[in-house]
């Protein structure tokens, strides 16, 4: 296969995943939340159980006027949604679906993922400051404090599994994975998942966008397509966190018939974890700012440090 065709196929596949998976997750969220609350959710768009609701939403967003507030810093304001979306696109490049089925296999893929996810904070601060709005700024400052704090347990938990596997490559970690790691790495998996939830600012960690007190935090002033970009970033974020937890802690493509159906196992695990993320949103009330920081620094960081000690102890005993 010529190089350009290979490249084209990879880019097309990543773009397709990037655009389709968030739509599926978004529709699932509408339906799952509705059924958990004794409603039916969208039923009309597209005739069958409202499957086209999000497509209709997208059309609506495109039609809306794109407003930039008069006092805003125009360039920064307009750039922020793209900066918010970009890291997730890069992360999706490195996630392996099946044996050998990855858009870009990297020797230190895990490091790339963690580094690039950190850029999201810059987007939050950009949108918060440039909106010229008190609520936006408050939301942004809260968001930055939350993202900086939760990055620490996220990195420590990922370091634990990297030490266990002895590699920083994401496909390498999946290959080294054994079923008993589910117990050995369980604390790290929990810490990673919770910290990941906080990184994508999903409920119960949605203090930065707390709609009942801050309107919509740093997204308050956005309309139309740029607001849709932020929403898309949130749903891609769900996919990314579910996929990373799958790859690092749940064994990725491992399962019966993994030679042929490995990719299906990965997608199923991602789907199950995404369901849990939606479920948590419906179940738990929002954490207050002090509770949120307390959970991070007094629970997650010590647990992940203890997990590092446990990992080293077990690894050196074997």
């Amino acid at each position: 296969m010529p190089l350009w065709l290979d490249l084209l196929i990879r880019v097309a596949a990543v773009m397709a995943g990037f655009l389709v998976l968030p739509l599926v997750i978004g529709q699932a969220e509408h339906k799952v939340m509705a059924h958990m609350q004794g409603r039916v959710g969208p039923m009309y768009a597209g005739a069958f159980h409202g499957w086209a609701q999000l497509v209709a939403d997208g059309v609506k967003f495109v039609q809306k006027e794109d407003i930039t507030p008069r006092d805003a810093d125009r360039a920064v304001f307009q750039l922020a949604p793209i900066v918010a979306l970009f890291p997730y696109l890069v992360v999706i490049l490195t996630i392996p679906l099946g044996p050998g089925l990855v858009a870009q296999s990297l020797d230190i893929g895990l490091f790339l993922v963690l580094a690039v996810l950190g850029i999201g904070v810059v987007a939050v601060l950009m949108s918060a400051w440039s909106s010229a709005n008190k609520y936006s700024l408050l939301g942004g400052v809260r968001g930055a404090a939350q993202l900086l704090g939760y990055e620490l347990p996220l990195v420590l938990a990922a370091a634990s599994v990297a030490m266990a596997a002895g590699t920083l490559s994401l496909p390498g970690i999946v290959e080294a994975w054994q079923p008993w790691w589910l117990i050995w790495q369980a604390p790290a998996a929990l810490v990673f998942f919770i910290a990941g939830l906080a990184e994508i600012r999903r409920p119960p960690f949605d203090m930065p966008i707390a709609d009942s007190e801050l309107v919509f935090g740093y997204m308050t002033e956005y309309t139309g397509l740029r607001f849709a970009f932020f929403l898309l970033a949130e749903y891609v974020g769900i996919v990314v966190i579910a996929a990373l937890t799958t790859v690092l802690f749940l064994g990725g493509w491992h399962g019966p018939f993994e030679e042929t159906f490995g990719w299906l196992w990965t997608l199923l695990k991602i789907g199950a974890l995404s369901f849990v993320i939606i479920w948590l949103r419906v179940t738990y009330p929002r954490l207050r700012e002090d509770q949120l920081q307390r959970l991070c620094w007094l629970v997650l960081v010590p647990v992940s440090l203890a997990q590092l000690v446990l990992t080293v102890a077990v690894k050196s005993l074997l």
Partner: peptide
């Protein structure tokens, strides 16, 4: 490491302090 430490943490702290 440059991205993780400088872009993701140091500059963000700087911006945070300025804001």
């Amino acid at each position: 490491v440059q991205i993780l430490v400088y872009v993701g943490a140091v500059v963000v702290l700087l911006l945070f302090a300025v804001m």
